[in-house]
Amino acid sequence: MGVIVGPRVIDAGASLFSVLISPVAVAAGFPSPAQDYFDGRIDLNAHLIKDITSTFVVRVTGNSMEGAGISDGDELIVNRALEPKDGSVVIAVLDGELTVKRLRITAAGIVLQAENPRYQDIKVSALSDLTIWGVATRCLHHV
């Protein structure tokens, strides 16, 4: 015990490459490498969390996303590392609050869409005007 392992250093160029593929690719849905070694029961963590550094769980309050199967009191699994795309269910910062909406990126502009006709959509002039906190990947719906 106590022997110092000297620094092995990673070439910056190589690191950059692995950076480019690693978090993004993993997040995009490659099976976790841990599954190859896994021989036991189904592991919900491995199934639901692709990147444990960037994945958070939040609780929904309100009914504006019911059309997307997201109800009041449900939990959402949110990955902050994902790139928000057209159609993503996102957690956006609106007036200092975290708000869940469907992101629409179209030629006509950027819209934060509710999934309930009783709620209004919010138009945004540019993506840069918008702070996206994270992208929801799963809904833990209470049945």
Partner: peptide, 26 residues
């Protein structure tokens, strides 16, 4: 962290780390 490379690689590496922590961890 131990890192290695030329200045023109280390600066981008530093920025990548800064951006990744901001994005992933917040």
């Amino acid at each position: 962290l131990g890192v290695k490379g030329e200045a023109d690689q280390l600066l981008p590496l530093g920025r990548t780390i800064r951006d990744a922590v901001r994005r992933n961890v917040g």
